[in-house]
Design a binder for these strands. Structure first.
Lengths: 133, 133
DNA sequence: GATATTACTATCCCAAAGGATACCGGTATC
DNA sequence: GATACCGGTATCCTTTGGGATAGTAATATC
């Protein structure tokens, strides 16, 4: 059986043509700590600078305090975020990114750009192909 | 209250200092179609070229056929993957990436690289700080 | 006739993710 | 005295993700 295939993506593969298990493993390792609906948006919003609990909640739109609290704890454990408490009244809690989070800069930037383009694509394809043609 | 903060990441923000809702929205839009444990690894493995069902299953390691089937259907709907059936015996089904998947090249590359470095960091920190010191 | 292969589907099940709502103590503000 | 703000918890619930196992049609092989 013959399958002709124009070469598609050309992500550089360290291994040969058809055996790049290391790449798949890399993606899976990344996803293991960054999984879920909220971690990446959360890290991204802290990219703008340190923020308080309520401020993060507002930036993210519709996250409930329970989920936000859980996500922040996980990010603390994985050394992406530092939590600092200030004894003001009422108390102030600041969350900020660790230096290690800097290594995510490219990932976040690419993902943000792709998401923005993707949305534009969806929107404009909806305009050019109206429902029930 | 004063908080001194060394500027952390410097992902370029199209909007002002503290109001980059567009960035968060971009990330969330991206994750909306790429969420879950399998979609990114799946797209990545098809980066190596068109593959058959069983071959994908083997590349991904431990995905069950039910899940793989579901993920492939979702990727077809979102125009990331094309499914072609060849009337051989036994039948051959080939999955390959669409041109649109090319737009994910940078995202996938960055994520793979980050995952690989992250794993190295974890492994070497485990070596330098043995359990029960 | 028994077994293997491919590309799945069907059924059942469990755990995790995520959401809704309510509440807390302490203070400040109206 | 009532209300609001802050940084969360507590409780309950639904949805989804995902896994295990078995089975299917058609053919080929032993």
């Amino acid at each position: 059986m013959e399958i002709t295939t124009e070469k598609g993506l050309e992500i550089d593969h360290p291994c040969g043509e058809n055996a790049c298990a290391a790449g798949v493993a890399g993606i899976r390792d990344a996803l293991y700590v960054l999984n879920g609906k909220w971690k990446l948006p959360l890290i991204f919003t802290l990219t703008e600078g340190p923020k308080r609990f309520k401020d993060i909640q507002r930036s993210l739109g519709d996250i409930t305090p329970k989920i936000l609290s859980k996500e922040l704890k996980e990010l603390e454990l994985n050394e992406f975020v530092i939590r600092t408490v200030y004894a003001t009244t009422p108390v102030t809690v600041i969350y900020e990114l660790t230096p290690y989070s800097k290594t995510l800069k490219n990932v976040l930037g690419e993902l943000r750009d792709w998401g923005i383009s993707h949305r534009q694509r969806i929107v404009s394809s909806r305009k050019s192909q109206p429902q029930i043609p």
